[in-house]
């Protein structure tokens, strides 16, 4: 498994400090925002949340390998990717609050996406977006654009027919795409050993005729470098790569899940000791690029900024009820217009 930063923060390859500090900031913001979303759900303000705590390196590291014109096909747990893409926190909060500023107009739970940031809204059905990510990548090639697609999914997705058909398709047509399988060890309660008999999910790429690599998903530098290679390869027209980012879901599957039913605290504690944010911080401290004072300030600022953003977002009015009937077809057919009339009579 590819690793650059040791758990103690020693590095085989020393990256540009500015890049590291920027990734560190985004990981911290993603963590703080994630915790806020958990809290907002507990307060009854948002419906459901799929937490990303523990997976920040996998998301931020791989997303930093992208150019700003590259396209993201995320899963529902990709908050760190959205932060790395510099999506304003308010956009994500408005989405979760399903208010009038929600780019998805309250049409889906726990997912984010906005074409303006080249993020295609995440799906809920597992693996359903992998074939469309491949089709999108092939159309970039058809249009002779140098943009590439990055497509995120979980370990559970690798058991699906969609995964197989799409990766096979991508291999046959050399699609400019990077597949990132975020192996967080569980699909809800089911461990990865129940999804597959292989040791490393990256070996599946062999069957599709392209390269697969497993990286330490809690090592942001390894994630970044592996994704960078894969992105550059895709851009050169040399086809797809499957990256398995081996990490751990510290929190529950979603706010509706209680993980104590299927895993013990010791396991969680072991993974907490491999925390991706702590690891990058040790490295930064070791290189003299960061101090504990600065660190404290960063966490405080993140907390404050996000709290204030949420307060602001909560002032947005709710979605207008008529909006429910919009956007089914380009032009509403008669039978939907009829519903609209009936709907307007409801209070």
């Amino acid at each position: 498994m590819y690793q650059v930063l040791s758990p103690e923060g020693f590095a085989e390859e020393e990256l540009d400090p500015r890049l590291l500090l920027s990734m560190y900031r985004d990981m911290v913001y993603a963590r703080v925002l994630d915790r806020w979303l958990m809290r907002l759900q507990r307060m009854g303000k948002i419906g459901i949340h799929a937490p990303s705590e523990g997976q920040e390196a996998a998301g931020v590291g791989t997303a930093y390998a992208l150019g700003e014109n590259d396209w993201i096909f995320p899963l529902y747990r990709e908050l760190p990717v959205f932060v790395a893409r510099k999506v304003p926190i308010s956009d994500i909060v408005n989405r979760n609050l399903s208010n009038r500023a929600d780019p998805l107009k309250g049409r889906d739970f726990a997912v984010y996406g906005d074409i303006k940031y080249r993020i295609v809204p995440a799906p809920i059905p597992v693996a359903v977006h992998i074939p469309s990510a491949v089709g999108f990548a092939l159309s970039l090639k058809y249009k002779k654009l140098s943009e590439v697609v990055i497509n995120y999914f979980g370990d559970g997705a690798t058991s699906k027919g969609d995964f197989h058909e799409a990766l096979n398709f991508a291999g046959v047509f050399k699609a400019p795409i990077v597949f990132v399988c975020v192996n967080n060890q569980y699909a809800i309660s089911v461990p990865v050993s129940r999804q597959t008999a292989v040791e490393r999910l990256s070996v599946k790429a062999v069957a599709y005729g392209f390269e697969g690599v497993s990286v330490d998903g809690n090592d942001v530098v390894a994630c970044y470098l592996a994704a960078k290679r894969a992105v550059e390869k895709a851009r050169r027209g040399e086809g797809p790569t499957l990256i398995e980012a081996v990490t751990y879901r510290i929190g529950p599957h979603t706010t509706a899940d209680d993980p104590s039913r299927y895993r013990d605290d010791e396991e969680v504690e072991m993974w907490r000791r491999r925390d991706p944010i702590t690891r990058l911080r040790s490295h930064l401290l070791r290189r003299g690029l960061w101090s504990m004072d600065e660190d404290e300030k960063l966490w405080q600022t993140a907390e404050e900024t996000i709290r204030k953003t949420i307060e602001e977002c909560e002032k947005n009015p709710p979605l207008p009820p008529e909006s429910i009937l919009e956007d089914v077809y380009a032009t509403p057919p008669w039978h939907l217009i009829e519903e609209r009339e009936e709907f307007s009579q409801l209070r």
Partner: peptide, 28 residues
């Protein structure tokens, strides 16, 4: 062959690829 393509026997990927291509402005 860039506009007319034989695919693998993959009905999921065929429809999925059409979705992706259409998302990107093609008319598959």
């Amino acid at each position: 062959p860039k506009r007319v393509l034989d695919t693998p026997i993959s009905e999921i990927a065929i429809v999925g690829a059409a979705i992706g291509a259409a998302l990107n402005g093609l008319r598959p």
